[in-house]
Amino acid sequence: MESGETGDAPARFNVGDRVRVKDLPNLFYSRTQMYVRGVRGTIAARTYEDLLPEDEAWNRDDAQPEQFYIVRFRQKDLWDGYPFENDTLQTELPDRWLEPAGN
């Protein structure tokens, strides 16, 4: 990951925005689960700004902090043939792992 300039990266997403989880390469360490990659979800909450786990794992304290979000997915979107219409799953992801997804 690129080392940061001064200041935090601006938070790009708001609660309710549709996003897709990127499928970035694993550079030795990641906390982005394989099962959410490429899947579309909705921003449920903004949590905090912090270093990416990929940077923190290597003590890159000068890297740029980013906004983290709780993202809500429909279970039917995560798993083929999931049989219950209403069920959902939430997990937390940093800004860099998300891209805008239309409705």
Partner: peptide, 13 residues
């Protein structure tokens, strides 16, 4: 009818 919402705690929350 009850929505089950799994919360996967994978970061600092």
């Amino acid at each position: 009818e009850v929505e089950i919402r799994v919360e996967d705690s994978n970061q600092k929350c």
